[in-house]
Structures are given as structure tokens and as C-alpha cells.
Design a protein around this nucleic acid. Structure first.
Lengths: 179, 179
DNA sequence: GTCATTTTGTTGCTTAATCAACATTTTAAA
DNA sequence: TTTAAAATGTTGATTAAGCAACAAAATGAC
């Protein structure tokens, strides 16, 4: 992909991300976004049909970043506290946007995709657990994912004063209880 | 000026500024700068003849910013601690680059231009002093400028651990002694 | 509801940036 | 010293972005 395309798209995503934290979606105009992004309004239409498509692709971009933070591009996943902290640090750095997405209208899709990504991060970890019964393992998987997702949402929306490392330590203890 | 030109130039200035802190000038290649700036190498030559011209114009850009921080674009100058703090905050934020420029080879031009800019910031302040004798006023002007420039250089090169506000308080006391 | 303003979507033309390639120069290694 | 590698400076073709303008649609004010 030509670097100009990458730059223009990234600038628009960054601008959208910033403005979504400050304004409700319906109050956002394309002119506002392009001005913030410092690109021509015509350029917007070279890449997106309308602001709904921008939103969709911006969410995809963020969730891909979340995915990358979970897998580190090297299939590392959540096999260590350090790996998990990468994800929590990423979420912390983008807390405002994720908070808006999790609390705004139509948050179901976003929440659901987040859980799917967390599942990818956690699946090998749970698989490595010494649980012989497949159904028990499935239950453990679902419980862990839901616990993680719920904890992240609570943290981002209610207690974002807590440091990522603190949260990772607590969550790690919870999922590593021997049973 | 077309925004593309502005963006490309700014990207190159920013890259040069960053790399100058990490490498000596003679070790800097144009390829390194353009890679850091994420612009095509050919683009570099649309704007600059060679890396010497980049350096010259980058220095100009920084000194213009220093000028702006001194005058705030509203002729405010150093008539209050707050105005002076703007400049010191700017210098603090760009300490690494200014340190390189003040300590490297050929630093005379840079130091001289810095003094000229500080003079602009300070001239009205000194003019407002109740000193009737023009020669005394001229001496006060030169002494104050030299004191300020020397203090800034010492701070940036030797004691950049000191907070800008601390330094401004001390300098303000020095230049406001009643005599 | 009407009217004014703002925003959107589009068009045509121009400009700046990108890319690959190449010859030349400079630098580094043997 | 010679050779290889890296960097520079340039070229031509292509692509993406910029800009101004305009018609249509949407929004806000009265």
C-alpha cells in the first residue's frame, strides 16, 4: 500500500478517535474530522463512503491493534504476565476511545468482538490447564473470558485510575488458582 | 502553502531533529532522515539541495519557534514571569536539540541567533526600566541578554534537571533587582 | 411550515509525492 | 591500493492528494 494512503487513513482514524472522545457520533461531521486530520475533505471520500464506514473501519483498526497486543505478532499470547501486560498497557493508552465504544449506543458488536479477541489470547493458556474433561475445560474457557472482558470493561469505564500492572497481577492470580 | 508541502517539510524537520540528538551530523545520511520521516527520498530533493540546507532550514524553524515563544505572536514579550515561562517551557521541551546545537561544531551562529532572539524578547522590558542614561541602559541590556543566554545554555547543557519555573523565578529576581 | 445555513457528495483540474531505476560519487572493507 | 557496498542525485511515469466550485441534501432557526 502506497504510503500516502496509509498516512491519510491513519490521520483520519486518529482524528476520528480523538473526536469520538469529545463529541457524540451524530454530532461529528466529516468536515470536523478532515479538519482535525489536516487532510482535504475530498480525500476522505477517496477512502470512505461516509462517516459510518469510517467508524466501522476505525473500530476494526483498533481491534486489530488489540489483537496484535494480545498475540504480539508472534503467537505469544497470554502465557506470561508480561505478555498480558502488553495488552493492558495498550488498553490503558487508548482508554478513552474504548470507554466510549463500550458505553455508547450499539456497543454490542464492539463488546462481542473484544471478547473474541481476548478468547484468542487466552485459549492456549486455558488449553494448557490440566483439565481432562472437555466440558469442564470449555466452561473454564468461557468463565475466564467473561471474567477478563468484564474486568477490562469495569476498569476502563469505572476505575481507570488503577495501574495496568496492578490489574494484571490480580487477574493473573485469579486465573491461576489451582483446582 | 499547500498542506502537502508543509507536512513533508515538517516531517523532515522532525526526523532531522530527532536524529541529530542520536547521531553526529556527519554520520547522518539523507536516507536515514527520509526513512525516519516516512517520506520518499526523492521528496527530500524537492525541498532541499542537500543535508546542509536541511540543517540550516531546520535551525531556522527552531529559532522561529523560539521567537514565537518569546513574543507569543502578540508582542507580549517578557513583561511577566508567565510570558518568560512560555519560552523556558519551550526550550525544556526541545532541550536535547538545543543542547546539541549549542555544544556541537559551528555553534557560534546558533548561539548568536539565540541571543538576538532573546534580545527581542527582553528589549521592551529593559526599555521600561527607569534608567535615564542611554549608555547605562545599553549596558543593562547587554548584561541582561548575556546573563539570560548564558543561564539558558548552562541549564540546557549542564543542569537540565532544574524545572523551568525554578529557573524563571531565579532569573526574574536577578533582572528585577532595584538599583 | 418557510427560509437560511451548514454539510454532504461530486467534479475537473492541478500539484506534490511516490516509486523504481540508474549513473555517479563517496565510504568502508579487504 | 583495489574492490565492494553504501549513499547521493537525478529521471520519468504514475498515483494520490489538494483545491475550488457547485448542486443537492440535511439541519437549525424563526
Amino acid at each position: 500500500m502506497d504510503r500516502r494512503v496509509k498516512k491519510s487513513r491513519q490521520a483520519l482514524f486518529d482524528a476520528f478517535t480523538k473526536l469520538m472522545v469529545e463529541y457524540p457520533f451524530q454530532k461529528l461531521s466529516i468536515a470536523m474530522v478532515t479538519k482535525e486530520a489536516d487532510v482535504n475533505r475530498g480525500t476522505f471520500y477517496l477512502h470512505f463512503k461516509d462517516k459510518f464506514e469510517l467508524r466501522e473501519q476505525c473500530i476494526d483498526m483498533h481491534l486489530n491493534q488489540l489483537m496484535t497486543s494480545c498475540t504480539g505478532g508472534s503467537k505469544e499470547e497470554f502465557t506470561s504476565k508480561k505478555a498480558m501486560l502488553t495488552t493492558f498497557d495498550y488498553l490503558n493508552a487508548n482508554a478513552a476511545f474504548y470507554k466510549v465504544m463500550l458505553t455508547g449506543e450499539d456497543n454490542t458488536f464492539f463488546r462481542k468482538r473484544m471478547e473474541e479477541i481476548l478468547k484468542i489470547g487466552l485459549s492456549d493458556f486455558i488449553e494448557s490447564k490440566p483439565i481432562n474433561n472437555p466440558i469442564d475445560k470449555e466452561i473454564m474457557m468461557q468463565a475466564t473470558i467473561s471474567a477478563g472482558a468484564g474486568l477490562i470493561e469495569w476498569w476502563l469505564t469505572k476505575r481507570n485510575d488503577l495501574e495496568p500492572i496492578y490489574l494484571v497481577d490480580r487477574f493473573w492470580d485469579i486465573i491461576n488458582v489451582e483446582r
